[in-house]
């Protein structure tokens, strides 16, 4: 391991979607990769996630979306981060059809992780997103 500071990642389910299998697995993957994970749980709002990111001094925010709400909710999250004058990168994981990935990136989402991403890819995507945001 290097002497880099431990990354702090806030994970949350934004909105009504209750599919939490994926995000819990991701939480353990990131923890195993040496990151500190703050999992906020279900039914979070953009405001509650911004508040947690500020309070926890988060390096990255991970959102999990399985209900086709990503095109509405992910850009709203990025806007809320901007409004709070934070530069925390937002990474979206879950069920995102391929044609939606570029529009999400254009809207300011740092990265999109699809189903089947390996543990290494998940951890590296977070590290890269943090590095690019610095």
């Amino acid at each position: 391991m290097t002497d880099q500071p431990q990354l702090r990642v806030v994970l949350a389910k934004l909105g009504l979607d209750g599919h939490d299998r994926g995000i819990k697995v991701v939480a353990r993957i990131l923890r195993d990769a040496g990151m500190e994970v703050i999992y906020l749980g279900l039914r979070q709002t953009t405001a509650s996630i911004v508040a947690a990111a500020e309070q926890e001094d988060a390096d990255a925010i991970g959102l999990s979306m399985h209900n086709a709400g990503h095109m509405t909710l992910a850009p709203a999250m990025v806007a809320a981060i901007d409004e709070a004058e934070l530069d925390t990168p937002v990474i979206v994981g879950g069920i995102v059809p391929e044609q939606d990935i570029q529009p999400l990136l254009d809207a300011g989402v740092a990265a999109v992780l699809g189903p089947g991403a390996s543990a290494e890819e998940v951890a590296q995507t977070i590290r890269d997103a943090v590095a690019n945001a610095d």
Binding site: G15, D17, N67, G69, T72, A76
Partner: peptide, 8 residues
């Protein structure tokens, strides 16, 4: 809460 989820 329903934003983006109605009828989906």
């Amino acid at each position: 809460w329903a934003l983006g989820e109605v009828g989906r």
